[in-house]
């Protein structure tokens, strides 16, 4: 990428100028101004989306890590036939764009389940959780696989010579070391999930993005409202980043390798 400092400077100063000198009516920050009553109502309406976005993201991330680990482990089986499902799952799930998968899970999966005699309605909340977890799990599985492969071979060999089974070696020796290595990429995936949860708005989930959309329809102030929406995601992601850095420091201090 070519960085053009002069161009960036021009754009930034022009927009700053526009913000200062714009005639009244061009900017309508009043819609999200907490100091006036209707603005405050709007802000509260938008902020209430946090709870759904956070719940969906956390549940999807936890499920994705569990599925990812379960998918990654067979990759280390000795038998080719045990390794095959891992490859198929990763290649297949990774190839599906998030939005079509969301539609399929929300509109299609209940039909599939009904045909199997299971009568289960998937609401927007669980539709979003399932989709995000599945879609992300293919990546989590690959992260786990590379993390496990990065642990030196001698570790598994030493575990074998002190009598541990392959499963025990994985559980007590390899995985604990792999998890420390993959913490940063796993955190990246969590941030990705938080951002992708915005897609849940299209199946009617009342999260951050949906609420912003609804407010735009009534207030006709897309610029101000979407700006606030972006800030909401920014705050969320910055909090996660800080949390991960804290966790890494804590684990790194224990290791001192």
């Amino acid at each position: 990428m070519i960085i053009r400092p002069r161009l960036i400077l021009a754009i930034v100063s022009l927009s700053a100028l526009a913000a200062c000198s714009a005639p009244p009516g061009t900017w309508g920050w009043y819609v999200v101004d907490p100091s006036n009553p209707s603005g405050w109502t709007n802000v509260k309406f938008l902020l209430r989306g946090f709870s759904s976005t956070i719940q969906i993201s956390v549940l999807a991330a936890v499920a994705s890590i569990i599925i990812g680990l379960l998918v990654a482990l067979p990759a280390f089986a000795q038998s080719r036939w045990l390794r095959l499902p891992n490859r198929i799952y990763v290649e297949f799930i990774r190839a599906i764009p998030l939005l079509p998968m969301l539609f399929w899970v929300f509109y299609g999966l209940p039909v599939v389940l009904r045909s199997m005699g299971i009568s289960l309605n998937i609401d927007p909340f669980w539709g979003a959780v399932i989709t995000l977890a599945l879609s992300d799990s293919a990546f989590t599985a690959e992260i786990f696989r590379s993390g496990i492969q990065a642990v030196p071979r001698g570790q598994a060999e030493a575990a074998q010579t002190i009598g541990l089974s392959r499963a025990q070696a994985m559980r007590y020796v390899i995985l604990p070391q792999a998890v420390r290595r993959i913490l940063p990429p796993l955190a990246n995936q969590f941030i990705y999930i938080v951002k992708m949860s915005a897609f849940a708005s299209v199946i009617g989930m009342e999260e951050l993005t949906r609420r912003a959309n609804e407010l735009v329809v009534t207030e006709y102030r897309p610029l101000e409202i979407y700006t606030l929406l972006i800030l909401e995601y920014l705050v969320l992601v910055l909090i996660i980043s800080a949390g991960v850095r804290w966790l890494e420091r804590k684990m790194g201090a224990n290791e001192s390798r």
Partner: peptide
């Protein structure tokens, strides 16, 4: 062989760092 019946010491120690 029984578990751990044959002990092995490696050039690179291979202790478990965690």
């Amino acid at each position: 062989q029984g578990r751990g019946d044959i002990g092995m010491v490696f050039q690179q120690f291979n202790l478990f760092p965690h």
